[in-house]
């Protein structure tokens, strides 16, 4: 019997064939993430006159298995920003912890809540700052060939307290637009949102209610057509007054009438 720890619990070669123990070899190449494991699907967001509405469903899939059904993929930071995470859930959790410690470090030197006259302006992390930081982090990780497998939307306010919405992906690519969607949403939800906010001016005319309605409509379409989506979702509205986050919303007024005419959606006899 081989008592070396490396051999503990391993199947015997003479019975099962050579065992690939490469992952235990300290001199071998480092294994970085090659593909995401537990994943979240689309995140959608749209700007309106005073802020941003952002939504994502509460599902974390394991391949095609709907594995975790109450995962909150919208996360609030510094009480003023919501980040929506698509892609790998463990990387999302890593980023969540990382940003939490960043926010704690920031609070050490936070000036008083109502700084006395003549004091320095409030130092705080706004959405634009967080987005820049995350984009640099994602780019640095892709440059190490060890990417954080996420596509993020950052919703909040910029330095001038104007609505801010921008995306960053696992390659460090960034872009900003009046409406954004990740994953399937970029094909299914983005055309709907662009009808209401084709440009910044149009987005600036949208009311909060209109923006929420559009996003809810998008979540419904995504649930109809994205097989890795869920009817339970989170939605957040970010404005100057803070973050209004609801984490247990249900899709309303679904109508599957359209499906009857489509082969593969339901029971079909011919």
């Amino acid at each position: 019997m081989d008592h070396r720890p490396q051999a503990w619990g391993r199947p015997r070669d003479d019975v099962y064939g050579a065992y690939d123990a490469s992952f235990m070899n300290p001199n071998g190449p480092n294994q970085a993430t090659q593909s995401p494991i537990v994943t979240g699907t689309s995140v959608v967001a749209i700007k309106f006159s005073e802020g941003v509405v952002i939504a994502a469903d509460n599902l974390a899939s394991y391949g095609s298995l709907a594995r975790f059904t109450d995962v909150k993929r919208l996360r609030t930071f510094a009480d003023s920003t919501v980040i929506g995470f698509g892609g790998d859930v463990s990387d999302m959790q890593y980023l969540d912890r990382h940003l939490t410690s960043l926010a704690i470090d920031e609070s050490y030197s936070a000036p008083s809540l109502d700084s006395d006259a003549g004091g320095p302006p409030k130092a705080r992390l706004n959405a634009a700052n967080l987005h820049k930081y995350l984009a640099k982090l994602l780019y640095a990780r892709r440059s190490k060939f060890d990417p954080l497998w996420n596509h993020l939307l950052v919703a909040g306010l910029d330095d001038d307290d104007k609505p801010f919405l921008a995306a960053a992906d696992l390659l460090g690519t960034t872009f900003s637009a009046p409406s954004l969607a990740t994953g399937f949403g970029s094909m299914l939800a983005q055309p709907i949102m662009r009808r209401f906010a084709p440009d910044e001016e149009a987005a600036a005319r949208l009311t909060r209610e209109q923006a929420v309605d559009v996003v809810k409509q998008c979540m419904k379409v995504l649930f109809y057509r994205d097989a890795r989506s869920l009817d339970s979702y989170s939605i957040a509205v970010v404005t100057k007054d803070g973050v209004d986050l609801k984490e247990n919303e249900k899709l309303e007024n679904q109508s599957w009438a359209f499906a009857e005419r489509i082969r593969g959606y339901g029971t079909q006899t011919a």
């Binding site: 109450d70 995962v71 999302m92 890593y94 980023l95 912890r97």
Partner: peptide, 9 residues
């Protein structure tokens, strides 16, 4: 207290 970034509750 929720664990930072936990999956579900």
């Amino acid at each position: 207290s929720p664990v930072d970034g936990e999956v579900g509750r």
